[in-house]
């Protein structure tokens, strides 16, 4: 019985995929996406413009880090670049794999120096989106990757790097024009 159910589900997904492929429009669609997320750089909020073409989406935007003890200023700002490949895409749900790069610049000032440090984060994620209204989708993703924090070492008086693993949890609200 279980085997039959699994075969039926696979059959359904394949047919669905074939139908979708046939329906896909051969033109670029646009959208915007907001994404609160947490990662090595703390709690962040991103805003990006997405271009969709068939199963692909490329987004570029900006982000801010929330004021915290880790990243202190509301003015901490960075860049986001995000590529998504939709492995499932039907009328109500989308599932995707994405490659995500973000950076964040922040200022640090003490008695002796004032410096601008930067964090690069690079993550591969898996996520999904659920249709809320005709144009609005919500979802989340989880990703793993790495970070490089390039900072001025106040003790040594020179630039250095921290490199490590990273985990990103993201919530998404996407609007498609």
């Amino acid at each position: 019985m279980l085997k039959k159910v699994v075969i039926f589900i696979l059959y359904f997904l394949i047919i669905d995929e074939i139908l979708l492929q046939a329906q896909e429009e051969d033109k670029i669609k646009w959208g915007i996406e907001t994404s609160p997320y947490i990662s090595y750089s703390g709690i962040n909020f991103g805003l990006q413009v997405n271009g969709f073409y068939k199963k692909h989406s490329l987004g570029i935007g900006t982000k801010i880090a929330f004021q915290s003890s880790y990243f202190p200023y509301q003015t901490s700002i960075g860049l986001m670049v995000d590529y998504k490949y939709f492995i499932m895409n039907n009328n109500n749900i989308k599932s995707y794999i994405s490659i995500n790069y973000t950076n964040l610049m922040y200022d640090v000032t003490n008695r002796y120096y004032s410096n601008k440090n930067i964090i690069h984060e690079y993550v591969v994620s898996n996520g999904f989106l659920i249709k809320l209204t005709k144009k609005i989708w919500i979802g989340n993703s989880i990703g793993v990757g790495g970070y490089t924090e390039r900072y001025f070492n106040f003790s040594e008086g020179k630039k250095e790097n921290y490199i490590g693993y990273n985990l990103m949890l993201k919530g998404l609200i996407s609007y498609e024009f």
């Binding site: 640090v108 003490n110 008695r111 440090n117 001025f152 106040f154 003790s155 250095e160």
Partner: peptide, 8 residues
């Protein structure tokens, strides 16, 4: 705290 943020 010392190296990155320059605390006293």
């Amino acid at each position: 705290a010392i190296d990155v943020y320059g605390a006293d």
